[in-house]
Design a protein around this nucleic acid. Structure first.
Lengths: 133, 133
DNA sequence: CGTTTCCGATTACGGGCGTAAACTGTTTAC
DNA sequence: GTAAACAGTTTACGCCCGTAATCGGAAACG
């Protein structure tokens, strides 16, 4: 599933909130993004058409429900980003992102753990590396 | 500077190779991407029009030279990717990318070092702050 | 009931993009 | 020097996207 920038905003909301009515999407996103009601409705419609959302009719209203897994879309977008900007090479991308991102101590710790878990099961502690290079 | 996917391919080549003639761009990218000569020429022209490339006439031929810094484009694309897909939150993005990427032991070590250097340990040896990314 | 109100569907429109043919001017080969 | 080759410029076209007005049917209100 291939989402445009604006569609990501809508999908992110519905992934976070669960099935949502159009009016709620409009309320939640319209003002914030400067979208008119019509614009939001168009996007919902297009998302249904492309299979990212489904509508179920609840009583007389419709609810929009995600039909694709967020993780799949994230994976696809990430892959595309890596391919386009970094030629598919993840390492420079990660170095860049880490360098340019604000990360909390907690974030850093989580990342360290993840790195270690990817390093065989060696559970080596990274804290004792050479201090300067 | 905002580059389309196809434009990234062209720009990546010229960033890597330095000033390049159209024929060389066509030779390097055309077959590989299934682009006709005309397609490559169109993209070069559009990149000039949008200010990403300049043409200098060397003798009777033209060379296309980058007019924007790669780092600036990478930064912009990364920012946009983070904003769109992860709501601007770098930490989940990094966790995801690390999880889903194949990384060599060297890559992992480099990342660990970088993480450590970002940790409160803002040691006074700030000699490597102007990294090029 | 008829009219207003909601809400989803249809239609619209300009711009960007991928793709590429056609045009034009210059250089080169016969 | 006239034709072929090359290279940059114009024009083209269909699709996606952001943005939105309008249509049409059902519900609610008076």
């Amino acid at each position: 599933m291939q989402l445009s920038d604006a569609e990501w905003i809508v999908m992110n909301l519905i992934w976070d909130s669960g099935p949502t009515e159009a009016s709620d999407v409009i309320a939640a996103l319209g003002a914030d993004n400067g979208w008119s009601d019509a614009t939001v409705k168009t996007m919902l419609h297009r998302l249904v058409k492309k299979g990212a959302l489904t509508t179920e009719q609840i009583g007389k209203k419709y609810r929009y429900t995600v039909a694709v897994r967020r993780s799949a879309c994230v994976r696809k977008a990430s892959r595309s980003f890596l391919d386009v900007v970094f030629g598919g090479d993840a390492a420079p991308a990660l170095l860049h992102l880490v360098k340019t991102s604000k990360l909390s101590e907690d974030d850093l710790d989580q990342l360290r753990e993840l790195l270690d878990s990817k390093s065989g099961a060696k559970t080596k502690n990274s804290k004792n590396k050479g201090s300067k290079e």
